[in-house]
Amino acid sequence: MTIIVSMAVNRLTKNTSTLEPLKLIDERMKQDVCGIVYSLISVPTSVFQQQWDYWFNTKKQTLEDDLVAWQVQQKNEFDVWQAEQEQEFLTWFESIKDILSGDVAANLATRIANLENGLTNHIADVSHVNGLKL
């Protein structure tokens, strides 16, 4: 007596050199070709399969819902961040707009001179601190 037990079936596509996991069909739970127990005492595996499918689909839906909620949250946070960055840029641009009008070189030279004077004054103010080398 020959007994053939099927564990799985893999559908192959011609002209391919790889196996695709989605085309692998698990037959371990099919009572007529394998089943977990196949003897004089038969255990109906369809109940196990139904329970597994229910658990898996519930878990899958929960994970998909969580993923969608996370994506929405990330998009909202990005939109807020992007708006803040845009506002910071516009504020910065407004602050330098006058520098970039008219004689740009003269405006920049004046600002550099003012910064240098401020630095010189600051150094003079703190030069009395012991051990400070400037």
Rank of each mutant, 00 (worst) to 15 (best):
K133G: 03
F93D: 02
N76H: 10
W70H: 13
Q51T: 11
D79M: 03
A109V: 07
H122E: 05
Q87V: 10
Y38H: 14
G118T: 14
D125M: 06
F56V: 07
V129T: 12
L22N: 10
L119G: 04
F89N: 01
L67S: 08
V33P: 00
L22M: 04
A106W: 06
C34Q: 07
G35A: 05
Q85V: 15
K30N: 12
L12V: 14
V72P: 00
I3C: 05
E88F: 04
F89P: 00
V72Y: 07
I41S: 08
N57R: 15
K60F: 12
P21S: 04
W70R: 06
F89C: 04
W52T: 03
L119P: 05
V129F: 09
Q71Y: 07
A106Q: 11
Q87R: 13
V72C: 02
A124C: 03
V80G: 10
K23M: 14
D103I: 04
P21M: 10
I25C: 01
K75G: 00
L22H: 11
L40T: 09
K30R: 15
D26W: 07
A113R: 09
Q50G: 01
H128P: 04
E88I: 02
W55P: 00
D66C: 11
D125W: 06
V80F: 08
T120V: 08
G102Q: 02
Q74D: 00
T110Y: 13
M1A: 14
N117F: 08
E27R: 12
Q74L: 12
L132A: 14
G35H: 03
A69D: 15
F89E: 00
P21G: 06
V80H: 10
N57W: 10
W52G: 00
D103Y: 08
I112G: 01
Q71K: 14
F93T: 01
D66G: 12
I25Y: 00
V37E: 09
D125F: 10
V33K: 06
N15L: 01
A69Y: 05
Q71E: 07
W55Q: 04
G35M: 03
S42D: 06
Q61H: 03
S95T: 11
V129L: 06
G102S: 00
N15I: 02
Q73L: 03
Q31W: 04
N114T: 13
L19I: 05
R11T: 13
V129C: 04
I96A: 02
D32W: 07
D66N: 12
S42C: 03
G118N: 13
V126A: 13
Q31M: 00
L100V: 04
E86M: 10
I41W: 10
S42L: 02
D79L: 09
V5R: 15
L100K: 03
R11K: 14
S17H: 11
E94R: 14
